[in-house]
Design a protein around this nucleic acid. Structure first.
Lengths: 348, 348
DNA sequence: TTGAAAGCGTTACCAG
DNA sequence: CTGGTAACGCTTTCAA
């Protein structure tokens, strides 16, 4: 038994290479390489001999070395801003699944803070990923860096206005306008908004959409408080609203489902209010807990599956053809009518 | 302006290499390499000249090429079984954060099905990751493959009995025994269990722990139904239990929080039962929704932060020193007493 | 401290 | 179809 075939008992063991396999099989190294390639030209016999030798040595092609020569790492970076948001894990899993169907792996980057992005981006570029999906906002300069490096990038749920860049997003503003319109048309006249963190562009868009429609309907005196997307912040936000207004509004519009749930619990538990009898509360995202019977949230669901599919195929198209022009895809959310808000019967 | 410095407007642009930088700076390629290394020996002046040239060319060391020569990819694989489980996203994010503190990146692999694991493992090995954290079970043969490849591996929340391997896990059985003991001591006498999917070892352990303690207390006639960790399956599980028993038991033990929540909703909504007045319901995991006031789950929280820290440091230790002997770390869960179960006053 | 040269494990190209 | 040889972009001796 040659030294190469030694098993793990032996320390500092070197992995078998295509040369080892070639030697054992009595063929050239190029032949081995070809056998392990997709569109290879290798005779039945060659294939057999090589595979036998490879099996004996536990040989596996080295994807790193392959990447060096092919200029394709077969890895994409996914950048996520670390949020207290139930929504992103689902996105991440879906992206990974879809990419894996194209034999592409996901290298994951999560940001501690938004400021972290420069150093993260540096890492991403050093790893020579084939492409990037980012669910964190990039500055113009940062985007320019990526583009100069010639790496295709797709923004997930954010977009740089007036800059040619690829993005897939849910129409947050439209969703909020729907919610507000329905609430207003059902007789709600006083409103409060629980926004997300200041630096969340998604939250900004949602708040903007809601305010737009409210203004259009002639509603003013809207109370706005800020949360952090978390349950507790939803609870304190509701308390803050009641405090500021001296009582509950007709409706509360929360920037995501989790905070909406926090609002509902606070309304019921700390103020003895009936939801939606005394106050209507709506959320956004349509994540799992929105469906729990105790809340049965009225919300807008992001079409995560279609959005992630779109992001993946956009990126892969551009990896294959870097000349493709920029494209933005906007998906409408799906209106979910739960019982956490009271709607006029004739709406249905 | 040399061709190398051309920006993205130009198609098929080649990235600057250390040779390009060396040429522009008028130094050797080795010098450039050293400047970009950590413990390098390079004069102040050299550093300055090289950095200037590098900046001008937008040069960034190629981590792939570096990995080839250093035999360190600085990537670890994280393997997760794709479950309807709210619990794993949190784990994933934490692992990524901790690894990134050690300048190590996470290559993510999610399994469509458990059978998917062989092909996934093949990918993992081809990418020459420095180590593996797996939250999916491996067969003995699969583990052997990894060990033969000399790649350190840490199991997360699973362990191979009688096989020397590294693992970090929460003591699921102990947690369930606590829950059962408290329920029994509070006067509950008839029990039902909602287990997770058949192929989930975590679920098996939890069920085992619960049954152990029940037997110890002399309880039998325990109804067991199977769920899939999802909300809907919790609801139908509860219905199934009532159906099978001809009425609700004193207590329901669900294999995770989400199913416990499903049970609660079903009990309240479809059967008009009071929780915990008529039936006590407990979960496991201690994820976000467990705290929502409408449920206020009595559960056991896994110490995710400590567990992920432990997994990361175990793996990194073994990457640094492959000779380290196997180690298993077991963490006790944290008992959370919510109001979804009725406990005797003297217990507190 | 610096430079020359030898790999690392592949794929790509080009004869045979 | 097969084998030889040149990259790929870096780190790492070893001399100077």
């Amino acid at each position: 038994m040659s030294e190469k075939t030694q098993k793990s008992t032996r320390a500092r063991w070197k992995r078998a290479t295509s040369y080892d396999v070639a030697e054992l099989a009595g063929v050239s190294q190029s032949a081995v390489s070809r056998v392990f390639q997709d569109g290879a030209s290798a005779s039945k016999q060659m294939r057999k001999r090589v595979m036998a030798a490879a099996g004996k040595l536990g040989y596996r092609p080295n994807a790193i070395a392959r990447g060096l020569i092919t200029q394709r790492s077969n890895m994409v970076a996914v950048i996520m801003s670390q949020q207290t948001n139930l929504y992103y894990p689902e996105v991440l899993v879906q992206l990974t699944q879809h990419f894996s169907n194209h034999r592409i792996r996901v290298l994951l980057f999560t940001l501690k803070s938004e400021g972290d992005i420069d150093s993260t981006l540096e890492q991403v570029l050093q790893f020579r990923v084939d492409g990037i999906v980012t669910a964190a906002m990039l500055s113009r300069a940062q985007l320019a860096t990526v583009q100069d490096a010639n790496i295709p990038i797709v923004f997930y749920n954010r977009s740089l206005p007036d800059i040619p860049s690829n993005s897939v997003r849910c129409d947050q503003e439209e969703g909020e306008r729907w919610l507000v319109a329905e609430l207003f048309d059902s007789g709600h006249r006083t409103f409060a908004i629980v926004s997300g963190p200041e630096d969340s562009s998604v939250s900004t868009e949602r708040t903007t959409g809601a305010l737009q429609k409210l203004r259009e309907k002639g509603v003013d005196g809207v109370t706005i408080v800020t949360g952090d997307y978390g349950y507790d912040s939803g609870r304190s936000a509701f308390a803050g609203i009641v405090d500021r207004r001296g009582g509950p509004p007709d409706a509360v519009i929360a920037a995501n489902d989790v905070m909406a749930i926090g609002c509902i619990d606070e309304a019921r538990e700390s103020y003895g209010l009936d939801v939606p009898g005394d106050v209507s509360i709506v959320g956004f995202d349509g994540t799992g807990p929105a469906r729990y019977a105790a809340y049965d949230l009225s919300t807008v669901r992001q079409p995560v599956k279609r959005m992630t599919e779109a992001a993946v195929s956009m990126l892969i198209d551009r990896i294959g053809n870097p000349e493709l022009s920029a494209e933005k895809r906007v998906f409408s959310g799906e209106r979910i009518r739960g019982s956490s808000a009271e709607f006029a019967a004739d709406l249905d």
